[in-house]
Simulated assay, not measured.
Amino acid sequence: MRESEASIRGRVMRDLIAHVTNDHLIGKKIKNGELRKKIGDSEPPWKCPDCFSLDVIEMDNFSMEYLQAKENPNTEKVILQLHGGGYVGAMRNAYRMFAGLYCEVSHGMSVLTPDYRVAPEHPYPAALEDAYAAYCYLLEQGWFSEQIIIAGDSAGGGLAMALCHYLKDHGKQLPCGIVAMSPWTDLAASGESYETNFERDPLFGKTRDSLIYNKDYIGDNDPYNAYISPLYGDFRGFPPMLIQVGSYEMLLSDSVDVAAKAREQGVKVRISIYEGMFHIFQMAAKMLPESKRAWVEIGKFIDVLLND
């Protein structure tokens, strides 16, 4: 699916983001991820809405948050959310909001969000290890793999696919579906859109000193390793995937290329390119027509998984 043009609200927000990130006082810090490393400490405590309950689960190396609907919870499946942040940004309130939206559009599914370890203190494979530990935790709690949906945005979307590569390679059963918002699947930055969208990406464009060129997570490892850049892995046997991406993103190729490869290898893939949209426009929730449609689309995809 591809829309013809962005909404007026979408264009205004896109231009506002571009204006802020082109301000050198804060723009460079936004683009290279410096603010993402600090934002968790500066955010006010998150107030969980009354319709949800939130439990914190302490693991050996990280913690997780388990969000549940208080009324009429949907116990047919569960969502494992892997948050974004370029592997350098930890858990923050935006992802708690995402968890609530996932619960809403899935008719009450619980959402587990690991606050996995991030670089530079914890480079690869820390994030993958923690994502795998979170998946195993759900299995230990009595969930079956066919009841687990993995959802992720940006780095989290790539991590969702990397986790599935790891599960498959190690003889583990895969989840029943993947929801990926602008997944970062090619940390080698080799896709066409890294050039064609260089001038118009409002968040990462017009500089090579941005988060998508950051090597803190990769370290000395091979960026073509499928556990780092899932684009280069084998997708045969993967569950159905929904991929959403904005047409203005430098990461557009990360979605387009991985969707094409997975389809060629027999995977059911729906890729939706939202015209004129920027990286993780879904954070606008219901404020933009595009983000509202994106969440409706996610709900419909989850409904399909429920009925399979």
Rank of each mutant, 00 (worst) to 15 (best):
R2D: 02
R2H: 08
I8N: 04
V12D: 01
M13D: 06
L16S: 11
I17R: 00
H19R: 13
H24G: 02
L25D: 03
L25V: 04
I26M: 01
I26F: 06
I26D: 00
K28T: 03
K29G: 05
K29D: 08
K29M: 10
K31L: 03
E34A: 13
E34L: 13
G40N: 15
G40F: 14
D55T: 13
I57T: 14
D60F: 09
S63E: 15
S63L: 15
Y66K: 11
Q68L: 11
Q68S: 13
N72G: 00
H83L: 15
A90G: 15
M91D: 14
R92D: 15
N93S: 15
N93M: 10
A94L: 13
Y95N: 08
M97A: 13
F98N: 13
Y102Q: 08
Y102T: 04
E104N: 09
S106C: 07
S106W: 05
V111K: 08
T113V: 15
T113M: 14
D115R: 07
Y116I: 15
R117L: 04
E129T: 14
D130P: 14
A134L: 11
Y135S: 10
Y135T: 10
L138C: 10
F144I: 07
F144T: 12
Q147H: 09
A155H: 10
G156S: 15
G156F: 14
G157T: 03
G158P: 07
L163K: 05
Y166W: 15
D169S: 13
D169I: 08
H170W: 09
K172W: 07
P175Q: 08
G177N: 09
I178L: 14
A180C: 12
A180S: 09
P183F: 07
D186I: 02
L187P: 02
A189P: 01
N197H: 03
N197R: 04
L203G: 04
F204R: 00
K206F: 03
K206P: 00
D209P: 00
I212R: 04
G219W: 10
A226G: 02
Y227F: 11
Y227Q: 10
Y227P: 01
S229K: 02
P230Q: 08
Y232V: 00
Y232R: 03
G233N: 05
D234R: 05
F235G: 04
R236V: 01
R236Q: 09
R236A: 13
P239F: 09
P240K: 02
L242S: 06
L242K: 04
Q244N: 09
G246T: 03
Y248Q: 09
L252P: 01
S253Y: 05
V258Q: 06
A259I: 02
A262W: 01
A262M: 01
V269Y: 00
R270V: 06
I271G: 00
S272C: 08
E275I: 06
Q282A: 10
Q282D: 13
K286M: 05
M287Y: 11
P289K: 08
P289A: 06
E290F: 11
S291R: 06
E297H: 01
I298D: 01
